[in-house]
Design a protein around this nucleic acid. Sequence first.
DNA 1: GTCTATAGTCGGATAGAC
DNA 2: GTCTATCCGACTATAGAC
Lengths: 216, 216
Amino acid sequence: MEKQTRTGGEATRLALIEAAIRLFGSQGYDAVSTRQIADAAEANIGSIAYHFGGKPGLRLACAEYVANRIATLAAPAAVSSLPAEPDAATAMLEAAIERFARFLVSSRDAGTYAAFLLREIIQPGEVVDYIYDTLIGRAHKRLCALFGVATGLVPESPQVKAAVFSLLGQVLYFRVARPVVLKRMDWDDIGETETDQLVNVFRTNVRGLIAAHRKG
Amino acid sequence: MEKQTRTGGEATRLALIEAAIRLFGSQGYDAVSTRQIADAAEANIGSIAYHFGGKPGLRLACAEYVANRIATLAAPAAVSSLPAEPDAATAMLEAAIERFARFLVSSRDAGTYAAFLLREIIQPGEVVDYIYDTLIGRAHKRLCALFGVATGLVPESPQVKAAVFSLLGQVLYFRVARPVVLKRMDWDDIGETETDQLVNVFRTNVRGLIAAHRKG
DNA sequence: GTCTATAGTCGGATAGAC
DNA sequence: GTCTATCCGACTATAGAC
């Protein structure tokens, strides 16, 4: 892969991917036309065929791009080693959920990426496989390990796996059903204040879940 | 509205709606063609224009149908009055979440309806407004009331609203991200056994959340 | 109410000039 | 690598026979 990030082909390639992620995320793959994408990227229609072979190729390129971006942003979290003490594990889980929540709910880029990923995750496909292998699977496994230490349960047991999905799911909900949440909360937007409120609830939830599942 | 549920127009009308819900839910509104729907309903293409004016009209009719069906199915739950004791409220919350989970995860019809609703909820639109007003808003409010009794918190406070969304969100996750869950759990499907396992986790989660949020 | 034929639109892909 | 012109296919919607 030759590098020429500034000018020429690579620039329009990126512009196309970023425009496509935004449009696919907000309207869905089928609802977006290649012309729309080219316009938004200020590129030519032909360039999509040139760079990606066609619309499906562009979709895959978007998935790779998003997966890499998120992996990069989330990388620091994956490095640290597993603690031995339940309290330490609980604290790390809380912190992880907070990071996830802040990333998902308030970061602007993340909103775009999340919308794109969500659309893909809803139904099976090769994009989902790719994302699962590079992102979700690993992250979930690591959180299960933490949950195992925190509760004394077997990390790879169905119970732990499901509980961890519950923790992630509640956070995701506020992104998926954002319109509904805003309406019910009487919020115009989820800004700093609102995010802090939500994070507090999530943290309490994490502690509650761990306590409820704890062995003995 | 004239009734002739057995034969003629009303029958094909229903067939069209039911086929459309299934297809819209699994593939998305834009990805489905009116021909596909007509074929699946064993009806003629022209009948869509006749009964609903066009594809958008059919979409709205689907939303109304789903909202009414779910409202009917969930009606028994909404009748009972508010308990005074925290323990009773907790038990009712647990039961409500279990009902919701069984409905959402295992019931076949619900799976279809849920998939359709999810697609609509992701992005704002008049369908979402309708569904919020007839379904989600009321149900959420009632659950908040129960949560308030169970914890001693103010039912309409942001904290309670968010906590209740968390409870619902975790359940919804297993529907939204079903492909991911199946992969990670190493399940082929979410049958009776699997649903029971999940319900147990949800029940534990409810108790944990209430305990963690409880005042004093 | 049902069905067919057709008009009109739009989208993806391609070929080829630059 | 970029851009234009164009083809082909698929779709929705409409009009009208039955």
